[in-house]
Structures are given as C-alpha cells and as structure tokens.
Design a protein around this nucleic acid. Structure first.
Length: 219
DNA sequence: GCGACAG
DNA sequence: ATCTTGTCGC
C-alpha cells in the first residue's frame, strides 16, 4: 500500500511554489568541484540507490562519493520523479563533506509541466547550482540529429524550457534544462565541457556506474 | 477514444 | 528505471 496513487494535487501545488524560487541566471563563478547525481533501481524495482559523485573539474579525478540505499515509498509518476528520488538523494547529499560548485542531475529541471522537475526541486531545496540532464524527452519533441555541439531550443508558449543537445557526433541528443542558479546558455556550455568523450556528462556517467554496481553487490 | 509519459 | 541477444567497433 505504499505504492498506491498519492494525492498529486498537493505535490502539484508544491511544485508550482518551488518553481517560483528557481533562479535562471548564473550564480556561479569558477567550477572547481563538479558533482553528478543519479538513482538506480534493483531488478525487481524494489530497492533504489542514490549516488552523488564529486569530481575535481581540473583533473577529473573523483574527490568524493556518497550513497544511500532504500525502498522508495513513492511510485514512479511522470512529472513527479522528485518525490520518488528526493528522500534518498537528500540522505546522500547530507553526507557530502565538500560543497560542489555545480551539480548535474539525471532528470529535468525547468523542462517540466510545472517548470520544476527533479533537478530544480533538488536545486531549490539545497540552494545549489544544478543542470537538469535527461536522456529522454518528457514531451513529444522531434528529435534532432547532428554533430557534437548542435542544439535546438524546446519552446512552449514562447518560453524556452530547455534544449536538445548533441554531445557526440551522430548520437542521440540530451535534454538540457536549467535546474537552479545557472543560465541555460551556461548549462549547454558546461554540459559539453564535461562530456568530452561520452554522451553523458562525466559526473552523471560515473554516478550511474557506481549506483548500479553498489546495488548489484547488495541485492 | 488514442497515444505519450524524465526515472 | 530494468529485462534481453546479438552485433558492430575501438
């Protein structure tokens, strides 16, 4: 009975309030420490593992890695991913001894029905700069194809919510949007900067690998 | 009614 | 998200 449909209206209201607090401008200087946030699930979908990895932006070496394992009490509901992931992500976040200058979150920021996806939710709650980085579109968008650096804005009612961004030649684009305290332009720039060899930015890629391996060794 | 729907 | 087999490519 933990996975029955929750009262979404309450959460919808909270998302609207949180979205008013999202800052779309750059509130960062130099990025010395960059982090990646990701959550993986066990085969049966019962257990989840949230990981935050911190890299030295210069050397790309891992400075710190924290994680939290548990059983999500909120089901996966499109547009409400934050409520499923935040408990574990928060537990991981509170274990960080260092304060990253920028976070990459595996999910949407303002590219969201309420302009407050999980990346923005995380950013506003902890008041940190975040880039929302999703591997799939949450809306029916015509996917672009091209070479590294190509991008195309995703617009709704005259507002740019995010951008499709090709990080590697001929590879499916990523869906980038502002999480919090960073501009969309800078988000594109930083994503390309931290995704020199693979489709995903290195912080998310490594967080993804670690969370999977941790779950594998435990379940 | 039908299809779409981050992780 | 996760399950799957083979296949192409560095």
């Amino acid at each position: 009975m933990s996975s029955l449909s929750p009262n979404l209206k309450l959460y919808l209201h909270e998302q609207k309030k949180l979205s008013e607090r999202v800052i779309l401008e750059d509130c960062i200087n130099a990025v010395n420490l960059v982090a990646g946030v990701d959550v993986s699930y066990s085969n049966d979908g019962k257990y989840a593992c949230a990981v935050i990895i911190v890299l030295d932006a210069e050397t790309r070496e891992v400075c710190e890695q924290v994680h939290s394992i548990g059983i999500p009490d909120f089901p996966y509901v499109p547009q409400f991913l934050a409520y499923r992931e935040m408990p574990l992500v928060s537990e991981a976040y509170c274990q960080l001894s260092r304060r990253p200058d920028l976070f990459f979150y595996d999910g949407n920021g303002t590219l969201h029905a309420q302009k407050c996806g999980a990346a923005s939710h995380f950013g506003v709650v902890f008041d940190v700069p975040v880039i929302g980085c999703a591997k799939n579109a949450s809306t029916s968008i015509t996917r672009i194809s091209g070479n590294r650096g190509d991008h195309s804005p995703i617009i709704e009612n005259g507002t740019v919510l995010g951008e499709q961004l090709v990080t590697q030649n001929g590879v499916k684009p990523l869906y980038i949007s502002v999480g919090h305290k960073i501009s969309l332009k800078r988000s594109i720039q930083e994503t390309l900067n931290f995704a020199p060899d693979y489709r995903l930015p290195e912080p998310i890629r490594q967080a993804d690998h670690l969370s999977r391996s941790i779950l594998k060794s435990i379940y």
